[in-house]
Amino acid sequence: MSTDTGPAVQELLPTQAWGLLESNPNAVLIDVRTKAEWSFVGKPDLSTLNRSVLEIEWSRYPDMSVNPRFVEEMIEAFEDSTPTQVLFICRSGARSMSAARAVQESLAGEMHRFDLFNVAEGFEGDLDSKKHRGGLNGWKAHGLPWRQS
């Protein structure tokens, strides 16, 4: 019986994720939040790197059921190119880790395709003392490029 669990999921802080995206044109960032979050909260902006963020919902609003086609949609989004590194981001780093682990499990036993990374802290980061996100840590708080829809 095989114990191969596929490529390991590594964690990066948002600034490390940005550095990896800057240095590797074959790295891809997948935002796994919901359409509502992309529209109302904003999203990472990779336009200065001449790339776009792939938007693939891990769970669907409003019931937050897991997208059963997530891995398939991800592979389809790659089209004819295969990235060397795939980074996952969500609001705080929890859903993106679940998505990355689902990809890891789905690829178990297959030929190693790419490295998997979860962006710790996510796009908005943790709640601060006033129960607000976006100022304590996360992509936005680190001053990384983002845009509002």
Score class of each variant (00 low, 15 high):
residue 79 E to T: 12
residue 98 S to E: 11
residue 49 L to P: 00
residue 17 A to N: 02
residue 39 S to T: 12
residue 121 E to Q: 14
residue 129 S to K: 12
residue 54 L to V: 09
residue 86 V to G: 01
residue 105 E to S: 15
residue 6 G to E: 01
residue 87 L to A: 03
residue 36 A to G: 11
residue 101 R to E: 11
residue 94 A to N: 13
residue 57 E to T: 08
residue 134 G to A: 09
residue 81 S to P: 00
residue 74 M to G: 00
residue 29 L to H: 02
residue 39 S to D: 15
residue 45 D to L: 10
residue 98 S to K: 13
residue 58 W to F: 15
residue 18 W to N: 06
residue 79 E to Q: 15
residue 75 I to Y: 08
residue 102 A to Y: 02
residue 148 Q to C: 11
residue 147 R to A: 13
residue 2 S to N: 14
residue 90 C to E: 02
residue 42 G to F: 03
residue 70 F to G: 04
residue 9 V to E: 02
residue 104 Q to E: 08
residue 71 V to K: 03
residue 119 V to M: 00
residue 46 L to F: 08
residue 117 F to M: 01
residue 35 K to V: 14
residue 30 I to L: 09
residue 21 L to P: 03
residue 62 P to D: 05
residue 47 S to F: 06
residue 9 V to K: 02
residue 5 T to G: 06
residue 102 A to G: 10
residue 1 M to Y: 13
residue 115 D to Y: 00
residue 74 M to D: 00
residue 2 S to I: 06
residue 107 L to S: 06
residue 99 A to Y: 00
residue 78 F to C: 04
residue 47 S to P: 05
residue 34 T to L: 04
residue 26 N to P: 02
residue 34 T to Q: 04
residue 67 N to P: 10
residue 30 I to W: 01
residue 103 V to A: 04
residue 109 G to T: 12
residue 57 E to M: 07
residue 2 S to E: 14
residue 147 R to K: 15
residue 33 R to G: 05
residue 12 L to P: 02
residue 131 K to F: 11
residue 136 L to I: 11
residue 46 L to A: 05
residue 116 L to F: 04
residue 125 G to Y: 06
residue 143 G to F: 04
residue 83 P to Q: 07
residue 36 A to N: 13
residue 68 P to H: 08
residue 119 V to P: 00
residue 117 F to I: 01
residue 9 V to Y: 00
residue 136 L to H: 07
residue 125 G to P: 07
residue 13 L to F: 07
residue 3 T to M: 12
residue 130 K to D: 15
residue 96 S to V: 02
residue 62 P to Q: 03
residue 42 G to P: 08
residue 105 E to A: 15
residue 58 W to T: 01
residue 58 W to L: 04
residue 21 L to E: 04
residue 97 M to I: 01
residue 101 R to A: 02
residue 19 G to E: 15
residue 80 D to S: 14
residue 53 V to T: 11
residue 50 N to A: 13
residue 145 P to Y: 10
residue 22 E to F: 03
residue 136 L to T: 12
residue 21 L to C: 07
residue 145 P to R: 11
residue 64 M to N: 11
residue 29 L to Y: 01
residue 107 L to A: 07
residue 77 A to V: 05
residue 95 R to S: 02
residue 121 E to D: 14
residue 29 L to G: 00
residue 40 F to I: 12
residue 117 F to C: 01
residue 37 E to H: 08
residue 70 F to V: 03
residue 129 S to Y: 09
residue 10 Q to Y: 09
residue 5 T to V: 09
residue 16 Q to Y: 10
residue 111 M to W: 04
residue 6 G to K: 07
